[in-house]
């Protein structure tokens, strides 16, 4: 890696700091959206006055706002995301316990999406406006519009209930029993991948068509270079940056889509955690999950930015 690239990486790392600080504001600010007295809302309608007071003190809601924020931030910096109002357990433990289950299906879905979408995109771009292209484009439109949890339900109905090939629900630890973990992750990953496949195919197709119809590639064709060689040397290399950006976007969306998929497959992940805690008004847990997921996405974007600057030296000008 050149010195310049290293400097770019350093600069990007520095830029991440204000985003993380803003993210802490946003996550902390979630509680401010609660209408009325948050303590009373959290305690519920049947709560006693003492319970309300207790919650208020526990969450530090009696302090001025900036002190509440500093208190929360101070904890977060040390890895303490407060405790659950319902179980009384540390939020960070619960989040970290569930995170691997979520990341497993997300990563599987991403790998699946890329390995299906890239050939589809190439196929469509090299047959523009032909029958193959129209078929692929239709599939992609369908993938964007279909609710992925419904796809999950159909998959369960067919492959788990009818055929019995896959388990209907649950998850297994990847470290303890990798085969069983992947077996459990298969159907949720397929359901999750549906929108990713569509998005990556569409973007890759557009980008490839643009490159292949450029003056430059036409010159190469005129010079007699084979289609396959042009596609590989000039097409895919040029669109790899587009692909990288799309993958970042799809990662973010897939991570979000886990909330419904985890409900369908009863996977104990972060998605189902945020749903149950939001339903139960267990705000410290909600804040914790959101904060951890934001951090993951920010780190993922950072990684993509760095890959970008390694792949494309033109970006290093800044």
């Amino acid at each position: 890696m050149s010195r310049r690239t290293l400097r770019v990486i350093g600069w990007r790392l520095l830029q991440v700091v204000p985003v993380i600080v803003l993210a802490t504001f946003a996550v902390f600010g979630l509680l401010q959206l609660v209408p009325g007295d948050p303590a009373a809302v959290i305690a519920g309608e049947t709560a006693t006055a003492e319970r309300i007071v207790q919650i208020r003190e526990m969450l530090g809601l009696d302090l001025p706002l900036w002190q509440q924020y500093l208190h929360w931030l101070g904890g977060a910096v040390q890895g303490d995301l407060s405790t659950s109002l319902i179980t009384g357990l540390p939020v960070i433990d619960e989040v970290l316990r569930r995170l691997p289950n979520t990341l497993l299906i997300v990563v599987c879905a991403l790998i699946l999406a890329i390995s299906i979408a890239v050939p589809l995109g190439i196929l469509a771009a090299t047959h523009v406006d032909g029958r193959v292209d129209r078929f692929v484009t239709s599939i992609a439109s369908l993938g964007v519009a279909v609710p992925n949890f419904w796809v999950g339900m159909i998959l369960v109905g067919f492959f788990a209930l009818n055929l019995g090939w896959f388990p209907t629900t649950g998850a297994a630890s990847l470290t303890e029993d990798p085969a069983r973990a992947l077996w459990h992750a298969a159907l949720p990953a397929i359901a999750l991948a549906s929108s990713g496949i569509a998005e990556i195919t569409r973007q890759l197709r557009s980008a490839l068509i643009e490159v292949l119809s450029s003056q430059y590639v036409r010159t190469l064709q005129a010079k007699g270079l084979s289609q396959g060689r042009i596609l590989w040397r000039h097409g895919l290399k040029n669109v790899s940056l587009t692909l990288l950006t799309v993958i970042g976007l799809v990662f973010n969306r897939t991570l979000g889509a886990t909330v419904a998929i985890e409900a369908v497959f009863a996977i104990p992940g972060t998605g189902s955690l945020v749903v149950t805690s939001a339903t139960n008004k267990d705000f410290p847990v909600v804040q914790g999950v959101v904060f951890v997921l934001v951090l993951i996405v920010i780190l993922c974007n950072l990684l993509i930015d760095i890959l970008y600057s390694v792949l494309d030296p033109r970006m290093n000008k800044q």
């Binding site: 979630l30 959206l33 979000g256 705000f283 999950v289």
Partner: peptide, 13 residues
């Protein structure tokens, strides 16, 4: 940079 549906659930909560 927050998964949108997760944020929507948090805000709904």
């Amino acid at each position: 940079s927050c998964p949108s549906i997760v944020l929507a659930i948090a805000v709904t909560g």
